[in-house]
């Protein structure tokens, strides 16, 4: 299988604060990686470095054989190959659902309006939002907004999808509907890097689970070995915080 994402000894610092220390990570096509770790360990920062939202101090991020985040230059056009969904949805409040989704494909990718609209409706059907195309984000529930945000990222046809704690801001009863969508994407073979605190979901969706702590990758493995037989003391202690 070919590599979609390759991170090479990535270093990220904020002034004197070292946030990511020499991260290496390779993600193959169709692979679903879940990253877990304590708050502040650098999970969001890692995702943000992958799609060029943050500058990096050393190393490089390569997607589909193109360098997206080099140390020196600004992010490049190949960033389109990376889709991202944020914890706070960040839909555009002045656009309705359909416009939110079709805006970038039409304006950025210069695709035909009709074709984009058709695909948008097709995708919205799959997440159960086909009859909310005219609604504005303020008229939608958190779960609906997040499903729409996933569609907004998907319609760009990214090679890899980054999801940063996409259920963390949701009421418990809406978590399921969003995670089901992600689980389906995984089954369809989408390549994803997912940051989450939902351990049961991580177990269900991941091909590989990664434990980060203090800006480093401390342990990684298949969901079975990761959750049943953690090797490091730090991961053991981290997993214990999820059992009452």
């Amino acid at each position: 299988m070919s590599e979609v994402l390759k991170i090479d000894s990535l270093v990220k610092r904020y002034d004197d604060l070292s946030v990511l220390e020499k991260i290496d990570l390779t993600v193959k096509k169709g692979e679903v990686i879940v990253i877990v770790g304590p708050s502040g360990c650098g999970k969001s920062t890692l995702l943000r470095c992958i799609n060029g939202l943050e500058s990096i101090q050393d190393g490089k991020v390569v997607v589909d054989d193109e360098v997206v985040n080099p140390v020196q230059k600004k992010a490049s056009k190949s960033r389109e190959k990376i889709g991202m969904v944020f914890q706070s949805y960040d839909l555009f409040p002045h656009k309705n659902l359909l416009q939110n989704i079709t805006l970038a494909p039409i304006k950025v990718q210069k695709r035909k309006k009709e074709e984009v609209k058709e695909e948008a409706i097709e995708l919205l059907k799959r997440v159960g939002l086909e009859n909310r195309t005219d609604s504005y984000p303020r008229q939608l529930s958190g779960g609906q907004k997040q499903r729409a945000a996933i569609v907004r990222a998907l319609i760009m046809h990214p090679e890899i999808l980054l999801l940063d704690e996409i259920t963390a801001a949701l009421d418990p009863e809406m978590v399921r509907e969003v995670l089901d969508v992600v689980l389906n994407l995984a089954k369809e073979g989408h390549t994803m890097v997912i940051v989450t605190h939902e351990m049961a979901f991580a177990k269900a969706v991941a091909d590989r689970v990664i434990f980060m702590d203090g800006g480093k990758i401390v342990e990684e493995g298949s969901p079975e070995e990761f959750f049943e037989n953690p090797r490091t003391e730090r991961l053991k202690r981290f997993l214990e915080t999820f059992t009452y």
């Binding site: 799609n51 060029g52 939202l53 056009k77 960033r79 389109e80 990376i82 889709g83 991202m84 944020f86 960040d90 839909l91 555009f92 805006l103 970038a104 304006k107 950025v108 907004r152 990222a153 760009m156």
Partner: peptide, 9 residues
């Protein structure tokens, strides 16, 4: 950031 992630100029 959302717009940037969609590669808007």
């Amino acid at each position: 950031e959302a717009a940037f992630a969609l590669n808007m100029s």
